[in-house]
Protein backbone atom coordinates (compact mmCIF):
# COMPACT_ATOMS: atom_id res chain seq x y z
CA UNK A 1 0.00 0.00 0.00
CA UNK A 2 1.35 3.35 -0.98
CA UNK A 3 1.92 6.10 1.49
CA UNK A 4 -1.22 8.23 1.63
CA UNK A 5 0.60 11.40 2.61
CA UNK A 6 2.79 11.17 -0.48
CA UNK A 7 -0.33 10.96 -2.59
CA UNK A 8 -1.92 14.04 -1.09
CA UNK A 9 0.74 16.63 -1.92
CA UNK A 10 -0.11 19.22 0.67
CA UNK A 11 1.44 22.33 -0.78
CA UNK A 12 2.57 25.24 1.40
CA UNK A 13 0.14 28.11 1.80
CA UNK A 14 2.69 30.60 0.46
CA UNK A 15 2.94 28.75 -2.82
CA UNK A 16 -0.79 29.06 -3.39
CA UNK A 17 -0.71 32.74 -2.51
CA UNK A 18 2.28 33.33 -4.77
CA UNK A 19 0.59 31.64 -7.71
CA UNK A 20 -2.63 33.54 -7.03
CA UNK A 21 -0.83 36.88 -6.97
CA UNK A 22 1.14 35.92 -10.06
CA UNK A 23 -2.15 35.34 -11.88
CA UNK A 24 -3.48 38.71 -10.77
CA UNK A 25 -0.31 40.49 -11.86
CA UNK A 26 -0.50 38.82 -15.27
CA UNK A 27 -4.11 39.94 -15.58
CA UNK A 28 -3.04 43.52 -14.97
CA UNK A 29 -0.23 43.18 -17.52
CA UNK A 30 -2.47 41.75 -20.21
CA UNK A 31 -5.08 44.48 -19.73
CA UNK A 32 -2.35 47.12 -19.86
CA UNK A 33 -0.81 45.58 -22.96
CA UNK A 34 -4.18 45.60 -24.68
CA UNK A 35 -4.41 49.37 -24.28
CA UNK A 36 -1.42 49.72 -26.56
CA UNK A 37 -1.36 48.68 -30.19
CA UNK A 38 1.35 46.25 -31.27
CA UNK A 39 -0.34 45.43 -34.57
CA UNK A 40 -0.05 41.76 -35.43
CA UNK A 41 1.57 41.10 -32.05
CA UNK A 42 -1.61 41.92 -30.11
CA UNK A 43 -2.98 38.42 -30.52
CA UNK A 44 0.34 36.76 -29.73
CA UNK A 45 0.92 38.81 -26.58
CA UNK A 46 -2.58 38.28 -25.23
CA UNK A 47 -2.56 34.58 -25.99
CA UNK A 48 0.96 34.16 -24.67
CA UNK A 49 -0.02 35.65 -21.33
CA UNK A 50 -3.18 33.54 -21.26
CA UNK A 51 -1.13 30.40 -21.85
CA UNK A 52 1.22 31.30 -19.01
CA UNK A 53 -1.75 31.90 -16.70
CA UNK A 54 -3.39 28.65 -17.76
CA UNK A 55 -0.15 26.78 -17.14
CA UNK A 56 0.08 28.23 -13.65
CA UNK A 57 -3.49 27.18 -12.86
CA UNK A 58 -2.98 23.70 -14.28
CA UNK A 59 0.39 23.07 -12.66
CA UNK A 60 -0.27 24.37 -9.17
CA UNK A 61 -4.01 24.72 -8.53
CA UNK A 62 -4.75 21.52 -10.40
CA UNK A 63 -1.62 19.83 -9.04
CA UNK A 64 -0.46 18.56 -12.42
CA UNK A 65 3.13 19.29 -11.46
CA UNK A 66 2.94 16.88 -8.55
CA UNK A 67 0.45 14.26 -9.68
CA UNK A 68 0.75 11.14 -11.72
CA UNK A 69 1.91 11.97 -15.24
CA UNK A 70 -1.16 10.32 -16.72
CA UNK A 71 -3.34 13.29 -15.80
CA UNK A 72 -0.94 15.54 -17.62
CA UNK A 73 -1.22 13.24 -20.61
CA UNK A 74 -5.01 13.39 -20.54
CA UNK A 75 -4.98 17.17 -20.32
CA UNK A 76 -2.34 17.78 -22.97
CA UNK A 77 -4.02 15.16 -25.14
CA UNK A 78 -7.28 17.06 -25.06
CA UNK A 79 -5.49 20.21 -26.19
CA UNK A 80 -3.70 18.28 -28.93
CA UNK A 81 -6.93 16.99 -30.41
CA UNK A 82 -8.50 20.43 -30.10
CA UNK A 83 -5.52 21.74 -32.05
CA UNK A 84 -6.05 19.14 -34.77
CA UNK A 85 -9.70 20.15 -34.97
CA UNK A 86 -9.03 23.86 -35.37
CA UNK A 87 -5.98 23.61 -37.62
CA UNK A 88 -7.44 21.04 -40.02
CA UNK A 89 -10.68 23.00 -40.29
CA UNK A 90 -8.60 26.06 -41.11
CA UNK A 91 -6.87 24.14 -43.90
CA UNK A 92 -10.25 24.48 -45.51
CA UNK A 93 -11.55 27.85 -44.39
CA UNK A 94 -8.37 29.84 -45.00
CA UNK A 95 -7.59 28.39 -48.41
CA UNK A 96 -10.86 28.42 -50.26
CA UNK A 97 -10.41 29.89 -53.69
CA UNK A 98 -6.83 28.68 -54.14
CA UNK A 99 -7.86 27.42 -57.56
CA UNK A 100 -11.31 28.80 -58.24
CA UNK A 101 -11.38 32.29 -56.88
CA UNK A 102 -15.15 32.61 -57.06
CA UNK A 103 -15.65 30.19 -54.14
CA UNK A 104 -13.41 32.17 -51.82
CA UNK A 105 -16.23 34.56 -50.97
CA UNK A 106 -19.66 33.62 -49.63
CA UNK A 107 -22.60 34.02 -52.00
CA UNK A 108 -24.08 36.67 -49.75
CA UNK A 109 -21.34 38.71 -48.16
CA UNK A 110 -23.75 40.47 -45.87
CA UNK A 111 -26.47 38.70 -43.94
CA UNK A 112 -30.11 39.28 -44.83
CA UNK A 113 -30.84 40.88 -41.47
CA UNK A 114 -29.06 44.03 -42.59
CA UNK A 115 -31.29 44.47 -45.64
CA UNK A 116 -33.52 47.16 -44.22
CA UNK A 117 -32.20 49.95 -46.45
CA UNK A 118 -35.64 50.76 -47.85
CA UNK A 119 -37.12 51.57 -44.48
CA UNK A 120 -34.55 54.25 -43.93
CA UNK A 121 -32.76 52.60 -41.03
CA UNK A 122 -29.70 51.77 -43.05
CA UNK A 123 -26.82 50.99 -40.82
CA UNK A 124 -23.56 52.71 -41.48
CA UNK A 125 -22.08 49.76 -43.31
CA UNK A 126 -25.09 48.21 -45.02
CA UNK A 127 -24.93 50.33 -48.10
CA UNK A 128 -22.51 48.03 -49.89
CA UNK A 129 -24.92 45.48 -51.25
CA UNK A 130 -27.71 47.52 -52.74
CA UNK A 131 -27.78 45.24 -55.78
CA UNK A 132 -29.76 42.65 -53.84
CA UNK A 133 -33.45 43.29 -54.15
CA UNK A 134 -35.95 43.15 -51.36
CA UNK A 135 -37.64 40.20 -53.04
CA UNK A 136 -34.42 38.26 -52.79
CA UNK A 137 -34.24 39.05 -49.13
CA UNK A 138 -37.73 37.79 -48.57
CA UNK A 139 -36.99 34.38 -49.99
CA UNK A 140 -34.06 34.10 -47.67
CA UNK A 141 -35.63 34.94 -44.37
CA UNK A 142 -34.94 32.40 -41.71
CA UNK A 143 -38.37 32.21 -40.16
CA UNK A 144 -39.57 28.68 -39.87
Amino acid sequence: MKDDAAQRHILPLNLYLAVGSGLLVLTVITVAAAQMDFGQMNLLIAMGIAVVKATLVAMFFMHLKYDNRIYMLVFVGSLLFLGVFIIFTMFDTLRRGDIYEEISEPYLKEAVIYRTAETGTASSHAAADSSHTAAEAETETTDH
Partner: peptide, 26 residues
Protein backbone atom coordinates in the same frame (compact mmCIF):
# COMPACT_ATOMS: atom_id res chain seq x y z
CA UNK B 1 -29.54 27.89 -35.29
CA UNK B 2 -33.03 26.51 -35.82
CA UNK B 3 -34.73 27.90 -32.74
CA UNK B 4 -32.93 31.18 -32.10
CA UNK B 5 -31.38 31.90 -35.50
CA UNK B 6 -27.79 32.53 -34.39
CA UNK B 7 -26.81 32.38 -38.03
CA UNK B 8 -23.50 30.58 -37.93
CA UNK B 9 -24.33 27.77 -40.35
CA UNK B 10 -26.88 29.68 -42.40
CA UNK B 11 -25.53 31.25 -45.63
CA UNK B 12 -28.37 33.79 -45.62
CA UNK B 13 -27.11 34.97 -42.23
CA UNK B 14 -23.48 35.20 -43.26
CA UNK B 15 -22.77 31.76 -41.86
CA UNK B 16 -20.98 28.88 -43.50
CA UNK B 17 -22.86 25.59 -44.03
CA UNK B 18 -19.64 23.74 -44.82
CA UNK B 19 -18.47 24.57 -41.32
CA UNK B 20 -21.31 22.43 -40.03
CA UNK B 21 -19.96 19.53 -42.06
CA UNK B 22 -16.53 19.99 -40.50
CA UNK B 23 -18.04 20.00 -37.01
CA UNK B 24 -20.25 17.05 -37.77
CA UNK B 25 -17.57 14.89 -39.35
CA UNK B 26 -14.98 15.69 -36.70
Amino acid sequence: ERVVGIGIFDPAMGGDPVLFQHFFWF
